[in-house]
Amino acid sequence: MDEELDNWFAREVLSHEPALVRYLARIWPRHHEVHDLRQEIYIRVYEAALRSRPQNPKSFLFTTARHLMVDRVRRERVVSIEATADLDALNVLVDEISPEHHTSARQDLRRLADAFDMLPVKCRDVVWMRKVEELSQREVAARIGITEGAVEKRITKGIRLLAELYYGGDADDIGGATAAARTETEHGKQNAD
């Protein structure tokens, strides 16, 4: 257990997740695999960082992403020619296509708030009480009259969905190699709990 390494990973690697997912979605034709790729890339980066931390975490992250995709393309031979050609063309441009987005704290908060708004309503209520009103899970349970186990469950779901929406974005939403269609109603719909 290396807390310092974990903090480094959250700060220097995870912070690039939106750019990383965009990058993957743009090149990788099978969208449903983007988050699996993302996870595999994190594993590779973390493993490397256990040995020694890369000097430039961001470019290391994207280089790892590219290597992984190239490996897959070679192994599977199923990716379309366009995607492969594009992959080669991008070799020197990784930094340029994932420019640092100088988002303000306010823009980050807005994205967080937008992600929060997309949570299913039961989940959303619990996250609000826990994070905004700062009630404990026990107090939340008492407030709405459900068990603590049920509160924990909703929080579990809330955490996963927030990460999807805020950090990674939904690969379909971001689009890319397979140009995702999207309508506003689809985007804003509330899932049932």
């Binding site: 980050d108 908060l109 967080l112 929060f116 996250v127 994070k131 905004v132 700062e134 955490i159 927030l162």
Partner: peptide
């Protein structure tokens, strides 16, 4: 990160 929702 969700602690920042407090601002809302």
């Amino acid at each position: 990160e969700a602690n920042r929702l407090k601002a809302l």
